[in-house]
């Protein structure tokens, strides 16, 4: 009888599981079609390309957050590290006159260091990830103002613009970079041993440790990947805006976490999909875009997004009960 039961459960599961797993994709398609039909000015080449470009920055940063949440952590540091990376990049190019390529490498190294600090505080210092990364965020906020005096660093060479604003074959370069990063992340999470270990550690850290996985190293790695992807996204934004801004990340953290959770990543770790995160970024991008097209004020936009996050977290909590 037990076997019968299991068999039935398994077969019932496949269809409902499929629908559940890809619900996010259907929501995206539905939202897109509805917006295309009902919202004037939505379904034009320029607008659609614009949405894709706009979300690509945030989606890359959200993919970074995805890795941290996947191992059961959370990363608050982007709230200031985005500003830091953008200032550092602009400062290195404008003040120190470094070549763009070198400046980017330095920023990525800084990102690794920040990720390591987050990871070491949380993994070896045994601080809760929330507190560890909050500390980093607050400290970096101070660093940002010290470094820039609170003034944006602009006047970057026009050659730098191509990363964030350029096109290849009619497709914005940030979108192409997002696609490449997404594919790498997907292969990494689904088809490598380290990727599997990330899920295992997030799902059951103790069992993973007793199965020989170096759980500390895996968690440390997640924080570093998170920080590096944040830096990559920031480099593209900085290229798009052509300035380093101390307050750049201030309002982004909320969107980042919304995207990761909306994408089906479990806040308790161990569950989530790379594509889910990217599609969630698209959904949020469409909502933002439609609200602008409909002339909804930005104050209302915040309220609406808050409600969306609440709804998503409620759904997340309920789906775990089963």
């Amino acid at each position: 009888m037990e076997l019968e039961l299991e068999k039935r459960r398994a077969s019932n599961k496949s269809l409902s599981q499929f629908l559940q797993e890809w619900a996010i994709l259907f929501i995206f398609i539905g939202l897109f079609v509805i917006s295309a039909i009902f919202v004037d000015g939505f379904f034009t080449y320029t607008n659609v390309i614009n949405i894709f470009r706009q979300i690509s920055f945030l989606a890359i940063i959200a993919l970074g957050q995805f890795f941290v949440i996947l191992v059961g952590g959370i990363d608050m540091s982007p709230g200031s590290s985005i500003g830091f990376f953008s200032l550092l990049l602009a400062g290195l190019i404008y003040w120190n006159g470094l070549p763009i390529g070198v400046a980017i490498v330095v920023v990525l190294i800084a990102a690794i260091v920040i990720g390591l600090v987050n990871g070491i505080l949380s993994v070896y210092g045994k601080l809760p990830a929330f507190i560890a990364t909050l500390v980093t965020m607050i400290v970096l906020k101070g660093v940002n103002y010290l470094y820039s005096d609170g003034i944006p660093i602009s006047g970057l060479p026009s050659g730098f613009k191509v990363l964030g604003a350029g096109y290849i074959g009619g497709i914005p370069i940030p979108v192409i970079i997002l696609i490449i990063i997404t594919l790498i992340c997907w292969v990494f999470t689904m088809h490598t041993r380290t990727g599997r270990s990330l899920y295992a550690v997030g799902g059951n850290e103790e069992a993973s440790r007793l199965s020989g996985i170096n759980t500390n190293r895996i968690k440390l790695l997640a924080f570093v990947i998170g920080s590096v992807l944040t830096a990559l996204g920031t480099i593209l934004i900085t290229s798009r805006t052509m300035a380093g801004q101390p307050t750049l990340g201030d309002t982004m953290l909320f969107d980042i976490i919304t995207i990761v959770v909306l994408g089906g990543t479990s806040l308790s770790g161990g569950r989530g999909k790379v594509f889910g995160v990217v599609i969630a970024a698209l959904i949020l991008g469409i909502i933002d875009n439609v609200m602008v097209l409909l002339g909804i004020g930005s104050y209302w936009q915040w309220i609406i997004k808050g409600v969306i996050l609440a709804a998503v977290v409620v759904i997340d909590a309920h789906s775990k009960k089963d």
């Binding site: 899920y199 295992a200 799902g203 059951n204 103790e206 069992a207 993973s208 007793l210 199965s211 020989g212």
Partner: peptide, 17 residues
């Protein structure tokens, strides 16, 4: 708590180590 990753499937649990 210690032996299995409960939401992993049979394969992923079996090959975990």
């Amino acid at each position: 708590q210690l032996g299995l990753v409960m939401h992993f499937n049979i394969t992923h649990n079996t090959t975990l180590a």
